[in-house]
Write a protein that binds this DNA or RNA. Sequence first.
DNA 1: TCATAAGTATCAAATAATGATACTTCAATC
DNA 2: GATTGAAGTATCATTATTTGATACTTATGA
Lengths: 253, 253
Amino acid sequence: MEKKQNPLFVGTLAKGLRLLRAFDESHVSLSLAELVARTGLEKSAVQRMAHTLHHEGMLERDPGTRRYRPSHAWLELAYAYYWSDPLISRALPKLVEFSRAYGETVNLAQISGDHIIYSLRLPNQRTQFAASIVGRRLPALGTASGRVMLATWSKEEVTHALENWPIRSATPKTITDREAIAEDIARAKNDGYSITDGQMMLNEISLAVPVISIDGRANAAVQVSVSSLTYDEARLKGEILPALLDTAGGIPG
Amino acid sequence: MEKKQNPLFVGTLAKGLRLLRAFDESHVSLSLAELVARTGLEKSAVQRMAHTLHHEGMLERDPGTRRYRPSHAWLELAYAYYWSDPLISRALPKLVEFSRAYGETVNLAQISGDHIIYSLRLPNQRTQFAASIVGRRLPALGTASGRVMLATWSKEEVTHALENWPIRSATPKTITDREAIAEDIARAKNDGYSITDGQMMLNEISLAVPVISIDGRANAAVQVSVSSLTYDEARLKGEILPALLDTAGGIPG
DNA sequence: TCATAAGTATCAAATAATGATACTTCAATC
DNA sequence: GATTGAAGTATCATTATTTGATACTTATGA
């Protein structure tokens, strides 16, 4: 184990958490050996941690394949999170209302370090699975939600973000030029919304508006995803934008 | 710490997990002292665990109040869970379809020990917050979903459940008589659906149908909640039940 | 069938967690 | 605004617990 200065740091617990985080969308179940590979821990340590997590109900274990999987307990943790975050209960009814009225996919995104995380998602029939489930994280600079939040932040913070936050190219259309993103944020600051086209997925247009708190700053955004095959920007601005501004504005500060 | 026989059991990790589980819908943030009270651990241990969990991004800490809260990481874990459970991706499009068509709250429930857990929820405007968010656990015997699943299980399993699983009285109408529940399960076995009225909440009717796997057994159910003020059982059976059976039946086995 | 990898069990060594205690900061009350 | 008790933080000697090497067993597939 690396030298951990602080005597309050409990290495064993941190190791256990690494096993939990070893699971993601492309690692839905892991064997002992795979856990060793993904966590970088000793085989013995992984054996003990996995045993303990299983014993405590945090990992499911297939007796046949001996592979470990996330358990229902991971959803219970999400349940506790939902109650703990006051924004969720304020935003949910507004999003439901919007979703029912327009039938388009609508999400609540929150800033989470240099990423955004989707904390509420109301999918429609056409929505891809990855875009339907909560907890997804995306680099903030590459999303309409992230940009429209940044548009409410101080000049210093925006500069820092533009210089340091990560950018990941997900489609041929992904803008990786930080200058261009800076312009987009400036535009969002002026317009009060941000639109991206095919940044994370081709043929997907995203429209995001900020959820502004009392101090004028946004740490969250409401975002709509539509297909570029059925919408163009003009129609999006005409039909969806006003309602989306109402939705975000209606979330109690 | 109690004597833990198995040398593979890592007590420190188990203790850390207790901090996470100390949070729930009525404990959305906890101070150090409250964590001590709720976990039953030593003050020193809680201090170290909380520090570590915070350091690892699993707990948010308000610098002003010094209280701990669940972090976004708890949603990320849910994201990993969603990918890991193959039922989710199969059920989601069907539930969305139903939700759009009927505009009523629809859920996917799965058995989780002697409880059911809601793993997908598509709320409508009238849905209460607690009924809108995933991860909620309810005693299986008290829910239409739990009963309709049990209806597909072996006689021995049902007997065992009826004798041992917990029952919690949530409303004046909650049925706590295990005989009556046995009858209800028998009825569900015959009908292929289960209806409860005001069991968890007054003025709420639940209709559940099983998601049956190849072996004829159900570990999941699709469930609709409607207000008893706008629906009666007859209307529910006439208008909703056929579509709900289609929805559940359409989930690929 | 054999060979090899994966998973499981054991144990001596010593690191890292423990929990008692002392110190500091906060917040409430007079 | 000073006083007081509770909550939070820091420290450290003790020792229980984790550690990680190794041997053993069970799977897998060539």
